[in-house]
Amino acid sequence: MAELTSPAAPAAAPAPRPAPGAAAGAFLGRHPLLSLLVKRLWLALVTLFLVSVLVFVIARVMPGDVGRSILGPYASAAQVAALDRKLGLDRPILAQYGSYIWGFVRGDWGTSPVLSVPVRPYVMGHLVNSLYLAGLALVEIIPLSIGLGIVAGWFRDRWPDRLISVVGVSLLALPEFVSGTILIVVFSIELRALPSSAAVPDLSIVDILHNLLLPSLPLLFVLFGYIARMTRAGTADALSSNYARTAYLKGLSGTAVLWKHVLRNSLTPTITVIAVQLGYLIGGLVVTERLFNYPGIGNLIYTAATDHDQAMLQAGVLLIAGVYTVANTLADLLYAVLNPRLRLGGS
């Protein structure tokens, strides 16, 4: 006789007897949302840690000696070595990373060796500028793409859907510099309606629109296609679901089915989609800010990368990853709050 498996205990003691499939009650004391929050925060921290390592490593292996790139080709080797020592670049890389992170957490982000300014206020200033632009873009994107996405889902496979879908798909992968260039030529050069170079606006709506409307449109184009498509798919699926059929056969009108039964199911996933797309939005900032000469964080990161300004680069990238991770975590939590299955725990 031979054993087929190699199990642990030979004679299985009659196992402890929590009824199978009935384990849900075991954690009654612990609120499912709370445990989700803890889990999400933990994941966010891990992600940020990995990003910080990645950025640190990339910044450290950039070509060219940091000291050399600051002092220029005519400095002596001794001068370069002295500067490197001053910047702490001769220490072991782990120690460098440790002191960098420790400093970053305490708010000491160092000084840019290239621009000779303290990093933190400079980066934060650019971040705020970018938030104006990103904020305006989101204010345009969310209602427009969700609204038209719902329209497309409702008219599935009829002409409004085809029109919205084809436009959305066409814009989906259109590089910002392409649409931006065309916008500049049309609106700044031919029509002379809006500036081709965006200044930081004061806080009046007119000034924000005047300066930032044009730069926000390329971002709108890319995200519109994506979010509208997701909204359309969610709405169309929910409309063909069995519970929508139940609602119709209960005698509800089409609009009542849409408002009372379909949207609350189809829009929750859209929240996650929007949060994930924030990454693209921020990436798009690099391009639009360059194209429109706008002093935002994208422009800052680009300049820092090409100038080998490590301190600026690390702070900028970490900040962006932080914004993105926080947004994602919030979106996940919002999703859970809106979804009774997650809120109350599955059965």
């Binding site: 006789m1 031979a2 087929l4 498996t5 199990p7 642990a8 205990a9 030979p10 299985a12 003691a13």
Partner: peptide, 11 residues
Amino acid sequence: PSSAGKITVTA
């Protein structure tokens, strides 16, 4: 994989 117990076969 089983958690505990034994499965025996002829050969």
